[in-house]
Design a protein around this nucleic acid. Sequence first.
DNA 1: TTGTAAGTTGACAACGTTGTCTGTTTGGCG
DNA 2: CGCCAAACAGACAACGTTGTCAACTTACAA
Lengths: 348, 348
Amino acid sequence: MSTLDRPNPSAQNRRRPTIREVAALAGVSLKTVSRVVNGEPAVSAKVRSRVLAAVDRLGYRPNLTASSLRRADGKSATIGVVLEDVGNPFSSTLHRSIEDVAGERGVLVLAASSDEDASREREIVSAFTSRRVDGLIIIPASHDHSYLLSERQAGTAIVFVDRPPAFLDADTVLTDNDLGVRRGIRHLIGHGHRRIGYIGDLLSISTAVMRYQGYLDELAAAGIAVDESIVRLDCRGIASAETAATELLSSKRPPTALFTGQNLITIGGFRALRKLGLHNRVALIGFDDFLLADLLEPAITVIAQDPAAIGRAAAEVLFRRLDGDHAPSAHHIVPSRLIARGSGEIRP
Amino acid sequence: MSTLDRPNPSAQNRRRPTIREVAALAGVSLKTVSRVVNGEPAVSAKVRSRVLAAVDRLGYRPNLTASSLRRADGKSATIGVVLEDVGNPFSSTLHRSIEDVAGERGVLVLAASSDEDASREREIVSAFTSRRVDGLIIIPASHDHSYLLSERQAGTAIVFVDRPPAFLDADTVLTDNDLGVRRGIRHLIGHGHRRIGYIGDLLSISTAVMRYQGYLDELAAAGIAVDESIVRLDCRGIASAETAATELLSSKRPPTALFTGQNLITIGGFRALRKLGLHNRVALIGFDDFLLADLLEPAITVIAQDPAAIGRAAAEVLFRRLDGDHAPSAHHIVPSRLIARGSGEIRP
DNA sequence: TTGTAAGTTGACAACGTTGTCTGTTTGGCG
DNA sequence: CGCCAAACAGACAACGTTGTCAACTTACAA
């Protein structure tokens, strides 16, 4: 057969070499190659170098899936991360810091987006466990995590971030949502505001509920009655927040300050203020920092979360579990902080 | 032994059930369970439902690593993506659109960050291939990809995005970097500018070179001589770009317009303009769009790439290869477009 | 010289699954 | 009733690796 018979002769020719072929070339047994590859001690220098030469010549790469199948601990050196959306800044920053901690231990990260869909969360977890990940880090979208019980019993470590799990006792790493909001509201009150509007995220997201509760609590603590006409909950995304903010600000008795409960909602709120020309008259504090918040006009005061710290903490807890820590579930709180930049310091 | 002997009785008790245990419970052979699980036809309805009941009762989840080891095609239903940084907007948007295409086919995505480090790129690829990913999508950091030859010969599909590979013939999906920059420079010239400064990214990044070349070419086409005193190359990040821009703008003969060759460089350049109070006097066009560019004062005119389209195209090419397409390497160009918002329309 | 321990090496089974092949049952038809 | 094809079920080997255990070599002391 001439080479012309195969249009692309370079592709898919050579199978990947196995440990068996390396052994044959080096003139030793399978097991000896395995020992060399895994750095086990009981191999003479002479044999070792012969094996390494064969490894090199064949371009042998160990097959980790076969290895983890056989290994006593069954570890795959892979963890799975369920994010809200791998493309959004909060999730991807979290992802990055998890990757950093995992990378130090030679562990790889599978990541997928639930898009706030409970059934998607389960599908992703199922795909992860089919591949026998050693651990899971989850931003929950579902509201019942009892389905994870069997996974944990099988030895998979599980850590929840950003939001607590439901019907499952597990490690968590959360932001101090309620306290953060209260600090922001207190800041506004301290600058003389009494009519403070609130725009919040989907109420199916537990942090959205916690944040709104912080708003209610701080108003109550200050003896200010809640006026539901300047509250909009269950918003999603920039456009819907912009609409909500426009409504509040155009009402008969508009708020003198606005607290927005999430990233995109803050941007939507800011857009509305700009469009109405109120951006230097109505105060704005948003939950969650975002790139360029300091370059807007006015610069936006925010309650900043620290997604990198959350991710790092979550990964550290996870690996501690994988190292055999069996202590009762721990609940970490990563503090948020107020960054005053201008928009939150406007007086009524 | 009393339960008190084990402090955490819920953890790590039950091993994961195997196909063998399902078979025993259902009273059939291994192979029959395998057939049911994989939806093969030759199983009677009665046996099938008996097996499914057993699967359900034991909470059996197939072990994909064992399965892919044995399977004829050896596919792991997993692909690896080497990004610059999973946390940056360009990379994570790319990641997300790849995930979407992969998800439709039940394929999971491993992602890792090279941080522009060639050796890190190789380590990541090695970790991916050890896990026998079916395909690789790579934003290259290294400048020699011949090491991937053996992977491809072993049947791994490989697609390069954002930048071309070196010393390896492979599919690519790129932005029209040079044309995009030329369009931007032409836009500035059209608004009366003759002194256009340029601030570029690390020259080790091939797209940075291509973009700078676009700048040179368009100036040449317009008959404008290049003045190297208003060009700064090899910048990295916001701070270094801000310094560079400040230098250019404070020089004896400052530019009347600035072209910035990357995301963060644009932000750095904008910061410098703001600090010097020149943001409404000196024009600015940046390569790469970013969130909120439209809300700045002035809003930033950009040459926008389409990372989601790039990711989608790359994933589609990859899966076409995995489906057996052996045609010669294809090179896709995803066009950029100019979004005029104000900063690029300032006249000298 | 022999015995013994330490240091090396290899044969074999097993991890959980699927491909192949063979054997058994069922149903329809003459 | 007998035959045959089609439908169904199972035994066994194999995927690439590591754990176990036994066997071989060497070096050194008795």
